[in-house]
Design a binder for these strands. Structure first.
Length: 923
RNA sequence: GGGCCCAUAGCUCAGUGGUAGAGUGCCUCCUUUGCAAGGAGGAUGCCCAGGGUUCGAAUCCCUGUGGGUCCA
């Protein structure tokens, strides 16, 4: 780390008279103008110095502070950029949530492949950090949702190759620190109080020098100078133990926590009171929380020390609280009773804001991905509300924040929250019953509920151990929750690492030029001419590379085209088409010959169906959006010839009514016969105009992206489309299903396939109508009547069988009667089903007789029933008889069944029955 | 994307390969006519669907459908 020390010797520090010092308490190196200063100024080395001692000239609200920051940097040459969604997985697949402003520009801008939207730029980016969840409310400074205000500059080295999307240096370390100082100065801060702590940064494969900016005990900004990348041979070893070397791009990545700045400007005891004063008032009032003046005093004094409460750093909550209580000379229990409800309320306010961001940006709760995180936050919030006694509906609380954040989809947000709360209530109710039953069982045995059961309850039924404890206590059962409970759960999920199949990159195509894509020029054409650049032999086929092609390679959920390539001498079949690094490979059955001039013919019927389905996909999702809500977003799609399917994020099942409306809307668009158009705008312009909803089917790279317009719908898409919506002919929804919670799949057919699928369904209906001998319209009613009658007859038959059995037993209808000891046994062959045999046997037993009945109806079967105290074990008898027909049997001692495949031996077995009975009785 | 759990009477659920059950609700009657009252009797069911194993499957195995839950 010492190797980086030179990185902090800035000319700006020199000119401004800064001094480099080492903190005697924690050992950190820091820069300050105040030559008398000793410690680094950050907790735990120092306490907060701004509480009830606001640090700036004026108090700022959240909105005012954001504006002050953005306009300061605008005035200093930065362009203001609109924030990105909190769901970072909308433009990158390596993370779920936006955790910092730099996430907006990873990976394509930071790597230099795509230019930034502006350079330098300033932004206030909403972020969510789930890892802070346990600290929220308790430390007074942690929030799960926050805005990271930032200024970024993207630079490349003078000697870097020409391949980067931006060139040269905008500004670097000195200017960054100067701007930071300048912003403090603009708020009226005495610059002697600002401390810059050296704290090298590592993350996501990059690293660089960085500084924490401290003012009155609180970290207000982080200035990161991203300039290195991971490299086993690198000259710098960083704190993560890896080696790093300098890279061609170097980027100014700063973060100024909007909430912290707002807080410091007001000097309130906690950040929460500065950021959501109205909501906290509301919650306190709703939970009927009131404090005396003395208690208020104590709360304020606690707040100043609360920096020590950090779940990660402090040993545990209780210890930290104990220390604070000792320092304030109050009872730890009393302090806890006073602070805990307040902490819950702070957390509720924060969590509601988190939910507003998540749901406002269109995340749908689910059991996967961001949807799962959203569900976790929502349930946690609901629990906190119940604990502290807030009885206002959760959707109202979330709406308060959504309104403040100016989201337009507030009705949907409320609807989702209500649905989720209801689902959670049902889960708890179900779980509660389960725990009650289990608790009673263990209470009876006088044992505690074992850990295995606890893990099962949590993992499969979503019940927190403390909730189980609570419910079980009512039933008088003890619960022993181990400290490492959650790691035990984690252990249960451990699976042997699946060997990841590394795709062997084909390097044969590296020297070939990118194939010219003719299919975008005119999507309706199916013929073209080209030159064969190369042919590669595969196991049972050939990969043909052309200079240009009309063949569409598999991509974006659209299957590849098929067709032929012809020379003067031969015609080869194109069976599959793939694209690798811009080179399109035509997989053929024969080689057309390298250097040949070929005529290509795409299978037009197949392509037309694919185009219909692709355009129809856009139309269906557009229609679904109008019917189900603006949150509808594609979660996957697959086009086909016969049918296509799209998966979309939605929080409820799609009803039959919804389907009908979607279908009608989709066909309205078809019948309008509007033009389907494409354009290739600059990606940043497109994003600015249409937002990230463009990227329904994935994020294409490059500076220009292809947009497809259908009706009002705009999507980034690389597929082929029909010219006018009328070309689709018709759209028919075939099926809907829930792929996973929060993801609904619609399967549909377009064009010919729509007609055919409708005909197939009608055929089925007509056939059913024919069988029932009624008109199709009467099928449902008739089917119901038949089903009811069928059930009625079943009951009647059961009834008659019993009567028959009773009659047979009473009337001595055939069958051999033998005396077995003091009991009479009836041995008979009745070729009937098991039910009838059983009924007859029961009737005989009623009369005090042993019944040995055989049937040859389906295989050889026996029923043996005996009255009490006959001294015969029915199971043994059946076992013996069944073995004679090649099978087995068994059952309780008074009623046994069995059989075997050899019907021919049935009569012989029955003849032996009296002997068997006597043997068994003697035994 | 992966793991685990569940599907039986209208509802809530027992049922570990051998005659489908309980509580509750429902119907009838009796007793009472005030607090989710008491007593007697009765009806409840394609045990989610399809395949397999077995003499025999609600039960074991596979596939599907519908739901729940945990993790990244």
């Amino acid at each position: 780390m010492s190797e980086l020390a030179d990185e902090y010797r800035l000319e700006y520090f020199e000119e401004e008279g800064f001094e480099r010092k080492e903190c005697p308490s924690c050992g950190a190196h820091f820069w300050t103008r105040d030559h008398g200063r000793e410690t680094c100024g950050e907790p735990p080395c120092e306490e907060y110095g701004f509480i009830e001692n606001a640090g700036f000239d004026d108090e700022y609200s959240l909105e005012e502070m954001r504006e002050a920051f953005l306009s300061y940097f605008e005035d200093h040459g930065h362009e203001r950029i609109e924030p990105y969604p909190v769901a970072a997985n909308r433009w990158r697949d390596d993370v779920l949530l936006t955790q910092a402003s730099i996430y907006d520009f990873q990976p394509l801008v930071t790597s230099g492949e795509t230019p930034p939207p502006a350079n330098p730029l300033t932004i206030s980016q909403p972020c969510i950090r789930m890892q802070d969840i346990d600290n929220v409310g308790k430390t007074g400074r942690h929030t799960m949702a926050f805005e990271m205000m930032a200024h970024h500059a993207f630079n490349t080295r003078e000697d870097a190759p020409d391949e980067y999307a931006y060139k040269g240096e905008v500004y670097w370390k000195d200017e960054t620190v100067e701007l930071c100082d300048g912003f403090f100065d603009s708020l009226g801060v005495d610059l002697d109080e600002i401390i810059y702590i050296e704290d090298p940064w590592v993350g996501g494969g990059n690293a660089g020098p960085a500084m924490e900016v401290i003012f009155r005990g609180v970290e207000l900004a982080t200035l990161v100078f991203m300039s290195m990348e991971q490299d086993p041979d690198g000259e710098y070893e960083m704190k993560d133990g890896n080696r790093y070397s300098p890279m061609d791009t170097y980027i100014v990545d700063t973060g100024y926590g909007l909430e912290r700045w707002t807080w410091v400007s007001q000097g309130t005891p906690t950040v929460y009171e500065a950021v959501y004063p109205d909501m906290i008032e509301f919650l306190k009032d709703n939970a009927e929380l009131e404090h005396t003046d003395d208690e208020e005093q104590l709360i304020h004094r606690t707040a100043k020390l609360a920096g020590h409460m950090d779940i990660d750093e402090a040993e545990d909550m209780e210890t930290a609280r104990g220390e604070i209580a000792a320092e304030l000379d109050v009872d730890a229990g009393e302090l806890e009773a006073l602070m805990e409800p307040l902490e819950d309320i702070y957390a509720i306010a924060d969590h509601c804001r988190t939910l507003a961001y998540m749901l406002g940006d269109g995340i749908v709760p689910s059991n996967v991905g961001t949807g799962y995180l959203t569900r976790m936050v929502l349930r946690r919030t609901k629990r906190l509300c119940d604990t502290v006694g807030v009885d206002a509906p959760l959707d109202e609380l979330v709406d308060m924040q959504a309104k403040r954040l100016d989201y337009k989809n507030r009705d949907t947000i409320r609807d989702i929250v209500r649905t989720e709360v209801e689902k959670y209530r049902e889960t708890l109710e179900r779980g509660g019953r389960r725990v009650e039953a289990m608790a009673e069982e263990y209470a009876e045995k006088g044992e505690p509920i074992p850990v295995e059961e606890l893990i099962e309850l949590y993992d499969s039924h979503g019940l927190q151990p403390d909730m189980v404890e609570e419910i079980a206590a009512d039933a008088g059962a003890a619960v022993d929750v181990p400290d490492d409970f959650y790691s035990l759960v984690a252990k249960r999920h451990e699976t042997p690492e699946a060997a990841d199949e590394d795709e062997d990159e084909d390097e044969r195509f590296e020297d070939l030029p990118e194939t010219e894509k003719l299919y975008y020029d005119d999507q309706q054409r199916t013929q073209f001419e080209a030159v064969v650049l190369d042919v590669f032999e595969r196991e049972e086929s050939y990969d043909v590379v052309l200079d240009q092609t009309m063949f569409y390679p598999e991509g974006g959920g659209q299957p590849a085209d098929q067709g032929t390539l012809s020379t003067d001498d031969t015609t080869v079949e194109v069976e599959d088409v793939q694209i690798e690094d811009g080179v399109i490979l035509h997989r053929t059955d024969e080689s057309p010959g390298k250097g040949e001039f070929v005529k290509g013919q795409v299978d037009g019927t197949r392509r037309r169906q694919l185009m219909r389905h692709h355009t129809a996909t856009h139309i269906v999702i557009h229609a679904a959006r109008q019917v189900l809500g603006e949150h509808i977003r594609q979660a996957g799609a697959q086009k086909g010839i016969e049918s296509s399917r799209i998966d979309m994020r939605h929080y409820a099942r799609i009803s039959r009514e919804d389907v009908k409306r979607i279908e009608s809307l989709a066909n309205d668009i078809v019948m309008d016969n509007t033009a389907v158009t494409q354009e290739w705008p600059d990606r940043h312009d497109a994003e600015a105009e249409h937002g990230f909803d463009l990227y329904q089917g994935g994020i294409p790279p490059g500076e220009q992206i292809r947009l497809i317009h259908v009706d009002d719908d705009v999507q980034a898409c690389g597929g082929t489309h029909v010219a006018r919506t009328g070309d689709i002919g018709a759209i028919k929804v075939l099926n809907t299903e829930r792929v996973q919670d929060g993801v609904e799949r619609i399967t549909f057919a377009a064009g010919d396939a729509a007609i055919q699928s409708t005909q197939r369904k009608e055929d089925a209906l007509y056939e059913a109508a024919d069988v029932l001998d009624v008109s199709p319209a009467d099928v449902p009613e008739t089917a119901e009547r038949f089903f009811e009658e069928w059930k009625g007859r079943g009951k009647e038959i059961e009834d008659l069988k019993e009567q028959l059995a009773a009659a047979r037993a009473g009337g001595g209808g055939g069958g051999e009667e033998v005396d077995i000891g003091e009991t009479t046994a009836v041995i008979d062959r009745i070729d009937a089903d098991m039910g009838e045999l059983r009924a007859t046997a029961n009737a005989l037993v009623e009369e005090g007789k042993i019944a040995v009945l055989g049937s040859g109806e389906s295989g050889a079967q026996f029923v043996v029933a005996v009255p009490d105290d006959s001294g015969v074990n029915a199971g043994e008898v059946v076992g013996e008889l069944a073995s004679r027909v090649g099978g087995g049997g068994g059952g309780p001692p008074d009623f046994a069944q069995g059989g075997g495949p050899n019907v021919a031996d049935l009569d012989a077995a029955l003849e032996d029955a009296p002997d068997v009975l006597r043997q068994v009785q003697d035994a």
